[in-house]
Design a protein around this nucleic acid. Structure first.
Lengths: 207, 207
DNA sequence: ACATGTGAAGCGCTTCACAGCG
DNA sequence: CGCTGTGAAGCGCTTCACATGT
């Protein structure tokens, strides 16, 4: 019940958190069975996952909704604000600047960057698009730790290197390519084409 | 070396394919080691993954790049065109309509839908945004099998149900909620907040 | 009585290490 | 010799089943 939380559990905690937030505000308790149904997983998995956070359930009763929300938030580090920069302000970058900005309290977008001089200076979501040369300065000033890459594939690796050099510790890569980052910099990839191709595989197979 | 390809392998095949496509056009062969480096995985994994497609490598030499691209494409069902509809034309829906449209040959966007009457009739990426009532008709006419959900969370389940009823067999869900679909309908979730929260967890932990 | 927490078994993926083959 | 293909071992996650606690 201590330190090492399995990776797969970490990936499910945000889902549980969202399910808890979707409960009617009057509901004080929730069982592993109910939460499992909401999250689309099996109840034993919910209990095992939550047991990694410590024992916050009551046998014979269930989990206290508010305590559990708080505990998951703490575990995920959501009590603090994370400053985020976005590099590559095309269609997707624009969408994320708006989307991510209001959706999540813990993530604050503090900088938008693009290599295209025509875009620099434009305003978006209350921020001005800045040139790549300003990246190190803004990251340092704002204490940004997270960078979102929404550039074309051919630029992504270079941008990732610049982000790492500037002090970014985690990268969310939407560019359709694999990027390498130095040790200590975490990269997660979100790839539309990959997802479509996986769907294609199963469609192709099953009918 | 036959039928059952592990899920994890299916998810990596698109990555291998992209790595192969990024090779200089003169390069005819590639080793599992090289491909592994490009894809950011271990060479044994590449060989095991590719062995599920059959034996397309030559011992002592490597894999024929063109043959391998063809074979992966066939396995993923990319030789055929998949008709795709997008429901929910907000910022993200708009971005995907443009992005996905030109990026992938195998996926053709054939319909854009939104519940907002103000958006209906607008033009985007050569298509006109249509009302939800037209969904069944368009899906049937165009033979669409894949649906992309980019609605707000509260509308996603209802939209998924409508898609399933209309004959959609695979759903890519960008809405920040878990959706349930009937048997035979495959759902994949892409969730920005989840990804950010996972990054937050590791940042929080490691420093 | 009832739902959690958890050993233990089961399962699938990863990795190793080397046989097999050009 | 070099690199693939693969049995086998290793590892981590899932699921079961029930002891535990209220």
């Amino acid at each position: 019940m201590k330190s090492a939380i399995p990776k797969v559990t970490v990936q499910r905690l945000p889902v549980y958190l969202r399910c808890l937030e979707s409960l009617p505000s009057g509901q004080r308790r929730v069982s592993s069975d109910d939460l499992a149904t909401l999250a689309g997983v099996n109840a034993a998995k919910v209990r095992k996952d939550l047991s990694h956070l410590g024992s916050y359930g009551v046998r014979g009763v269930g989990y206290d909704v508010d305590k559990l929300k708080l505990q998951i938030g703490l575990e995920l580090g959501l009590e603090q604000d994370w400053a985020v920069v976005i590099v590559g302000i095309g269609n997707l970058g624009r969408a994320l600047a708006n989307y991510a900005g209001f959706e999540e309290r813990s993530f604050r977008i503090v900088g938008l960057f693009d290599a295209d001089d025509q875009k620099v200076g434009q305003s978006l979501d209350g921020l001005t698009i800045e040139p790549m040369s300003r990246l190190p300065e803004v990251v340092a000033e704002q204490g940004a730790r997270i960078g979102i890459v929404t550039t074309p594939a051919h630029a992504a690796q270079q941008v990732a290197d610049l982000l790492a050099d500037a002090g970014i510790r985690s990268i969310l890569n939407f560019a359709p390519t694999v990027i390498k980052a130095p040790k200590g910099v975490d990269v997660r990839r979100v790839d539309l084409s990959t997802e479509l191709q996986v769907l294609s595989f199963y469609l192709h197979r099953k009918g």
